[in-house]
Each structure stands twice: as C-alpha cells, then as structure tokens.
C-alpha cells in the first residue's frame, strides 16, 4: 500500500476526528442560525428538535397582499443542499393540511409554488434565507408570466384593479369564480 500516513503528519488540524453530524444537518444549522428575517417573516418549528421540518409565515406589510398571513411548509431532506428544500403553501402549521387555497398567480390550489430557485435554478450556494426572501417577493410582485393559477394570472394581466379586488376578497375567505379561498387576514 502507498504510505499515505506520512502525508498526514504535516497536517495536524485536519487529522482530528469530526463529530458524526451529517453535512446536511450542519448546513441547516448554519442556514437557520444565520437567518436574518424582517418582522414580516416568522419561522415555526412544530418539533423544535427537528430542524428539517418547519413552517414559515409571511405577513406582507405592503403591496396588495398586505394584511394577510401566508404559511409555507419546508421539508428538507438529507441531500440538502444538493437538493432544494421542498416548499408548499399551507394555511396551518400542520405540514400536510388540506386547506391551503390562496389566490395568487404563482401558487396553485394544491399549494405548489412557482419560484425558480425552488426547482430549475436551485444551486447549493443558495440557502434558506434566499428561498424565504424569494417567497416574500412573490407577495410584493406577483408574476403573471409564470402562472400556476391561470385565472388569477389572467386577471392580473387583463385588469389589475379587478385582480387587487379579488385578492382582497380571497384573503377574507371569499369565493372567486367558484373557488372558495381560505381566510388569511390577520387583525
């Protein structure tokens, strides 16, 4: 066998054993403890010992979604950050709740979210902070070009005032074109 050990002698520091924490776990710890969230975003851990499953609630303080509270579930697997976190819109702190309907061109009625860095543009250099900031941006600038809720996108493109009205209606738990939305307004 080659004598690898002799190469090691010079590198004392590297020779020390590391704890058995997984790379994903360390990275999540780093991401979470360095989160720099504005007052409009808040994380919630159903089980504080489990860093890989949590929710984020966004309460926009400007724009047409002002006054609403929107919750997203984050599920991180052991392949993070090679794979992005799985993020869905959900209107409770339960990760698999059924009622998750919000009126937004980039969020469908199943809670799927169209945000490029959650899928095709994800890179390991991005982190949880970038994803959260990206989500908040969707509420400030809904984007009619990447529709997941086609009717909402259509409305936004055709008649912005009507769209804004629909947003307000939906946030109060109203019915728009036969779809009952969840009440998300906060006092």
């Amino acid at each position: 066998m080659i004598k690898i050990w002799s190469m090691k002698k010079n590198e004392d520091a590297a020779a020390k054993r590391k704890p058995k924490t997984s790379a994903a776990q360390i990275r999540v710890q780093k991401d979470l403890t360095e989160l720099d969230l504005p007052p409009t975003m808040k994380t919630h851990f159903p089980d504080p010992a489990d860093l890989l499953n949590f929710t984020l609630t966004i309460t926009p303080d400007e724009g047409m979604y002002k006054g609403g509270a929107f919750t997203f579930s984050f599920v991180i697997n052991t392949n993070y950050p090679h794979e992005p976190p799985k993020v869905k819109c959900t209107q409770t702190h339960l990760l698999h709740a059924l009622d998750r309907k919000i009126y937004h061109p980039n969020v469908d009625l199943e809670g799927n979210v169209c945000l490029n860095i959650l899928r095709e543009d994800w890179k390991p250099v991005l982190n949880l902070n970038s994803v959260m900031v990206g989500l908040q941006y969707l509420f400030l600038e809904p984007n009619a070009d990447d529709p997941l809720n086609k009717e909402a996108a259509e409305e936004l493109r055709k008649n912005r005032d009507q769209f804004v009205y629909n947003v307000r209606q939906s946030m109060r738990g109203g019915n728009i074109k036969g779809v009952q939305y969840n009440k998300v307004t906060v006092q």
Partner: peptide
Amino acid sequence: KPTAFPICTIAN
C-alpha cells in the same frame, strides 16, 4: 443539477 422544468411550464 438534475434536470428540472419550471413548475409553471409543467402546469400550463
């Protein structure tokens, strides 16, 4: 990165 298509393309 694994091939992923924008979710809105898939949907619409």
